[in-house]
Amino acid sequence: MPTEISHINVQYDKTIGRGEQFGPGFNYPVFVARGQDDIMYVLCRGTEFRPEGVRVTVCTTDEEYVSTFARGINYQGPHEFNMEDGSLVWPTCIALDSQENLFISDEWLNRISSFSKDGDFLGKWEERTGSGDGELDRPSGMAFDADDNLYIVDSGNHRVQKFSKDGKFLFKFGTEGSGDGEFNMPWGITIDSHGDIFIADWRNDRIQKFSPDGQFLMKFGSSGSGEGQFDRPTGIAVDRDGVIYVADWLNNRLQVFDQDGKFVAEKTGEAGVSKWAKDKLDANAEMWGERERAQGLEREKDFWGPTGVTVDDQGRIFVPESARNRIQVYKTQSPTFAGPRL
């Protein structure tokens, strides 16, 4: 019996980012991966009009800009896309392996590309579009387990597949449907400290939990906007205490559940002016005045398009908002005794 959680206290910490086509800022961020130390990798989905907007922005949790790598496809010239190695079309998720290499899913190319943490292109799995074993149709969320095997949410095939790190098919579970262990275009995935797998079953508006070998364990959630209900959940994360966080996309909120899937709290957004945002406003100083005059400035706090959620080992929760080009960070106060002082 794991520790019983008596209080789950989630508080707003800070906001990171600003809208920017390139450089320090984000462009339709859809996923955050937390690396060693303070490093975070932010996956920018971008648009198809500006290839440089599609990228990974590397920065620290203190909002120091580090670098940018990968890019979108260049549309100039003939209509055939230039699908060269290392370019991304519809990037969806980053999974970090034990050496902190980045694996990025691309749900248009049906491709898994890998990069070193310095942004060097390492390689890609040979594209295998289809519905057979090991074939992919719009790969979405991904997560490595403790043995460096990669679970991929194969959304178009309504299933989850497990691969070795070099792309060898190991096994799969799930089929299309709404029963236990069935999926409707699933999206996010996370693996908890016991190796159990949580899936954001997107179009079924629920979360499902599975054992490492794909046995259905539990589910929670239904369609709607009430407590514990979802409108297309995108991302899911579980912290070291077993607390579950869900990015409730079209309800524009973060929901928090205990380890049994019981609703604990919701956060509709508390964003403030980030460090980069302040730089931007200082350079356009009259906007500080416009903000004073603006009607409903409190709307700036609200989530818009929360797409994915990531927790780190310090108990911080990162929620990228694709429509606001920023990341809201929350933190938990752990009920678990962590020592050493009374």
Binding site: R18, G19, A271, V273, S274, W276, A277, K280, L281, N284, M287, E290, R291, R293, A294, Q295, G296, L297, R299, E300, A323, R324, N325, R326
Partner: peptide, 18 residues
Amino acid sequence: VTNSIPRYPYGKYDAKFM
């Protein structure tokens, strides 16, 4: 219409008739 929130740093917000 209402005075709007500037587009920097996080993008625009819907204006309202008043």
